[in-house]
């Protein structure tokens, strides 16, 4: 794909073809990002837009940035987004119904005006010359050119931004860190709790899910010897999510006690 992008970047017509295919797709994907309900879908669409932008970068002789875009954005940042999405889970904020009255029309009107004026301004702005192109600047290679600039003219911002990065990493740790509110119980304490607790029923550990039932999945509660289900055999988070299945589902209506005699 990269080789293709590089090639279409060289000549006008292929680039145009690529642009007119990928460009509308990117816009549609971006719009869809706003309209889909699930945040995970939004993230996938976002990743698509970013990959398209990476192609655009490469097509415009910004090979290094294109690669960085894929690696850093699509690879790292979007994965971080997905990771947090999984951590935080699904909740009512995924709903698309507007709760603040009148906000949506205002936003859309303002955005239409903003975009329209922007496009209109761009349309009226004239450069007065053709694009110069980067073949001269990239004579020694795009990475070399950027590296040269980074460590000569932009070395001071580069250093500052490195400090910012370190600060951000530390800040994220500080923000996400949560000190324990109680002392971590020792193994001895846990043992005491188990045997001196209210009952000895769980002294040997909780029943494992599924195993003694007629289904061996983790989301089905085990059956106790008297035939009743044991809800505490299922993981608490599955219960909380409502993903626990009823053990009755797998009840056999009639148990055949007769073993077919071997002939």
């Amino acid at each position: 794909m990269m080789q293709l992008a590089l090639e279409v970047g060289q000549t006008a017509t292929p680039e145009a073809v690529m642009f007119w295919i990928l460009g509308p797709l990117a816009v549609v994907a971006a719009l869809a990002m706003l309209l889909v309900k699930k945040a995970v879908h939004s993230a996938i669409l976002m990743a698509f837009v970013m990959v398209v932008l990476a192609v655009f970068y490469i097509a415009q002789d910004a090979v290094f940035l294109g690669i960085v875009q894929v690696v850093v954005y699509t690879g790292a940042v979007m994965m971080l987004f997905l990771f947090i999405l999984m951590l935080v889970g699904v909740d009512s904020s995924d709903s698309l119904t507007e709760t603040i009255k009148g906000l949506r029309p205002i936003a859309i009107t303002a955005a239409l005006g903003f975009g329209g004026l922007m496009v209109s301004l761009l349309g009226r702005a004239t450069l007065g010359r053709d694009a110069v192109g980067l073949s001269a600047a990239n004579a020694d290679g795009n990475v070399e050119g950027i590296g040269y600039l980074l460590f000569s003219r932009f070395v001071w911002p580069f250093e500052v931004i490195s400090a910012l990065l370190v600060t951000a990493a530390l800040g994220a740790m500080v923000l996400a860190h949560q000190p324990r509110s109680s002392k971590k119980s020792t193994q001895r304490q846990q043992s005491i709790n188990r045997f001196r607790g209210e009952s000895l029923a769980t002294a040997a550990g909780l029943p494992a899910p599924g195993v003694y039932a007629r289904h061996n999945a983790v989301d089905v509660p085990a059956l106790l010897p008297d035939g009743t289900p044991a809800p505490n055999s299922v993981n608490a988070s599955l219960k909380a999510r409502g993903d626990m299945l009823d053990s009755n589902t797998f009840d056999l209506k009639k148990i055949s006690t007769q073993v077919e005699e071997e002939k």
Binding site: A62, V72, V77, F81, V132, L134, A137, L150, L164, A168
Partner: peptide, 27 residues
């Protein structure tokens, strides 16, 4: 590309780094 020098790309590079910082702290 239009201006024929790499300053814009360097700036985009910086933007990416800042965006990464912002994402980390924001998340």
């Amino acid at each position: 590309r239009i201006n024929g020098n790499l300053d814009g790309q360097v700036m985009a590079f910086f933007t990416m780094v800042v965006a990464a910082c912002e994402v980390v702290v924001g998340l």
